[in-house]
């Protein structure tokens, strides 16, 4: 197995690949910044598998923790509230430390 692409705690941006069809990255987190919560294992890329392509294309899956305020600027809850979501490695880019967004 190849090396794990992101370490726990690393800052990442979820990019918008603009990919249509059976993708597992919902619109509401595209472009948002969070940190890697944990590596979730390696899976066949569902974006290919759903169309009968790419069986065996292994991609790494990460759980990303985001602050709700970074997802929804007008989030109606508390400052500390968070959301975690599973994102495949090709939707993630390292994000320099600094202000989110």
């Amino acid at each position: 197995m190849s090396e794990v692409a992101f370490a726990d705690g690393a800052r990442v941006r979820i990019v918008d690949l603009g990919k249509p069809g059976h993708v597992r990255t919902p619109q509401y987190v595209r472009g948002k910044v969070g940190v890697i919560e944990r590596f979730g294992g390696t899976y066949e890329n569902p974006e290919d598998r759903a169309y009968g392509r790419g069986r065996g294309t292994a991609v790494q899956l990460f759980r990303v923790r985001l602050r709700q305020r970074d997802i929804w600027p007008d989030y109606p809850g508390c400052e500390a509230d968070t959301l975690e979501i599973e994102i495949y490695e090709h939707w993630l880019r390292p994000e320099p430390t600094g202000e989110a967004q």
Partner: peptide, 15 residues
């Protein structure tokens, strides 16, 4: 309570 962090888990992929 406000002091309790709410953490939503979007179960969107393989876990």
């Amino acid at each position: 309570p406000e002091e309790t962090e709410i953490r939503v888990h979007d179960s969107n992929a393989d876990l």
